[in-house]
Design a protein around this nucleic acid. Structure first.
Lengths: 361, 361
DNA sequence: GGCAGACTGGCAATCGGTTGACATTTGAGG
DNA sequence: CCTCAAATGTCAACCGATTGCCAGTCTGCC
């Protein structure tokens, strides 16, 4: 087979670079919106399309010489593979979905960033969607996204265990901050941080604590409560749970009355947002913090160190969580041995100004 | 044509619901991962695939009766159209990309949320990617995403005008907070908010102002400076520009010395993050705010009202910006008349504690 | 009753890749 | 110089939709 078709190639061959692209080909590509296909490359390199496909995605299958020629042609045409066309036969879209309950909740920023970077690093694209704290929206969004993504990360999902298992049966799923048997998840080491927090409060002299729970469906909130219960028992402190509370600043504001009614000297909120709301309400009502009431939160969210007084909190590695979730998902997809997903993410107490010795000590 | 194939249908017909799905079909679908195709529907409804396609996406093209039968079959098989397969012939992926410089910057949360909701409302999926304040990463990400999305929203892009125009020539683009001729953009009404801010400072007694600029490539930073210049001239106030500064809290911290050196009584920062950093540094150094120095920022970011003192700022409707950007993009895609993109988003001065009368007045 | 024109629905090509089966080339070994 | 297997490349079917074109049917109207 003649590599250089003779006859119709009028333009001279002198310039080795640009002019090697026959005007006809260039024209056809231009008309198509500038996007070259493997057929164009095949024509330019004088091989068949399937060879191009193999050269580009099955290293080693094609001789080094041919592969080089093809790669060269591809770059001359600035070829970008069409992900949709590839996805059709393979069923792989190279896309991952990340579902969060509330995008504006600072807790998720870190997760999103970590996930996005890790995905991009692996050549994957990340779709971010918000369920607005609604299980229904979440289910709908999940099923809308399912056909077009290779896997789903559910951060702070509001779905039932069964619904999650059902989804996981149809597509790879990784949970962040939620454990469901048979499903991969990335979890923080709640116990460690909580123990540190209660030791801190105990050392300050607190003996009675109130826990301001998050949404009823929140798995983490339950975990935090369990941990608090364990630790306070161990330390001989009194503890009560109040809630559920919407995990927002507004939610925290509304809870002050019940917190004060409990006569506890320290309040631990489900998250920093609630803690901040609580502190704002307290300030407005002249309740001194930490003098009359110590307050602590979870997550070390952006803003909690700006607050005055700044918020004592149990932080966890959010960005790391997003990163890890993507890695686990990709491992599953690759059929590789999955990174040990059971390894917990570190959590750590960050002492700031909102906790102090109770006044009557 | 026989609607009910006779012969191979052993299971009885009594139950009208479930058993109408021939076992063979069900089996085939199950083997394929539970995902039904229009071919399955066609078989079940006794029509051709093309008719199914039309019934599902071209309302009115098919008779109501047939369409009903098809819709029924589709829902019985819990059909979900394969977005990739649809994208191939149409070239439409029903996906939009949103590129931001820094996901963890609270300024973008609102934009992301607004964009995501508006996109979801229109049945579109939103891909969020981060360029990490790097023009190179941004260019790379853009070209990676281009083949798989129908349009791109560039929020706070770091690309050059030419690079943007080049991208816009190949795929629909909408800019947020950046104006480039020939390219759609969504912009805030900077003048209004700035005028309010300077009037406020002037009324407090300030006569000399320092502007802490953002990144050199930031178009908004330039706009804000121009506006400040205009307003301060009109009011007869002195103003100087300092910078560039990284638009983060750290960036703000590092700028205190130069700000104090200017001997101005009020500092206007490119954004709230810088303002916050500046205030933290000031607090650490015993500079009283607003007594010795008034500080104001832009964006009314989450956290700026938590700061103590809370930050006076010029806020704009971030969520609205994201929403609007998606609408403009979709209008372009639909070939509809484009919503008047030149209409500016409202901005508004939010007076808080970080501004006050200068001490020596 | 007959005919034009509107409606319906089907055929088959197409989008841009991937991949199993097969043909051809190449080179080593006898 | 010949045989045979390995290496390389091609053919053609396929993924799941969309859509231009055409044929058959139905309707209304004269």
């Amino acid at each position: 087979m003649a590599r250089v078709p003779m006859g119709e190639v009028q333009p001279s061959e002198p310039s080795p670079e640009a002019s090697e692209i026959p005007g006809e080909l260039a024209e056809r590509i231009r008309r198509r919106g500038g996007r070259a296909t493997i057929y164009d490359i095949a024509e330019l390199a004088g091989v068949s399309p399937s060879t191009v496909s193999r050269a580009l995605s099955k290293p080693g299958r094609i001789s080094a010489k041919t592969e080089a020629r093809i790669r060269d042609a591809a770059s001359r045409l600035s070829f970008r593979i069409n992900p949709m066309a590839r996805a059709l036969p393979t069923g792989r879209s190279q896309t991952l979905a990340l579902l969060v309950a509330d995008i504006t909740n600072p807790v998720v920023f870190g997760i999103v960033r970590g996930a996005e970077h890790e995905a991009a690093r692996a050549g994957y694209t990340l779709v971010v969607a918000e369920s607005q704290e609604s299980g229904e929206t979440e289910a709908e969004t999940t099923s809308r996204l399912m056909p077009s993504v290779d896997g789903i990360i559910l951060a702070s999902t509001r779905l039932s265990d069964d619904a999650i298992r059902l989804t996981a049966a149809r597509t790879p799923v990784v949970l962040i901050n939620r454990a469901v048997s048979e499903v991969d998840s990335v979890l923080p080491d709640v116990e460690k941080g909580v123990a540190e927090l209660l030791n801190h409060l105990h050392a300050l002299g607190h003996r009675s604590i109130v826990y301001l729970a998050g949404p009823q469906i929140s798995w983490v909130s339950g975990r935090r409560w369990e941990s608090l219960l364990d630790s306070s028992e161990a330390l001989g402190m009194a503890i009560v749970e109040i809630g559920p509370t919407t995990p927002t600043i507004d939610g925290g504001r509304g809870a002050l009355r019940r917190v004060l009614a409990s006569k506890s000297t320290a309040a631990v909120a489900f998250n920093d947002l609630i803690a901040i709301g609580l502190m704002q309400a307290a300030a407005r009502q002249g309740v001194e913090i930490p003098g009359e009431l110590s307050v602590a939160g979870f997550d070390n969210v952006f803003g909690s160190e700006l607050m005055c007084p700044s918020v004592t909190t149990v932080g966890s590695e959010l960005e790391q969580a997003g990163r890890r979730a993507v890695r686990v998902l990709l491992a599953r997809l690759g059929g590789d041995d999955v990174e040990d997903a059971s390894e917990l993410l570190d959590t750590e107490l960050i002492v700031r100004e909102s906790t102090g010795p109770p006044r009557d000590v």
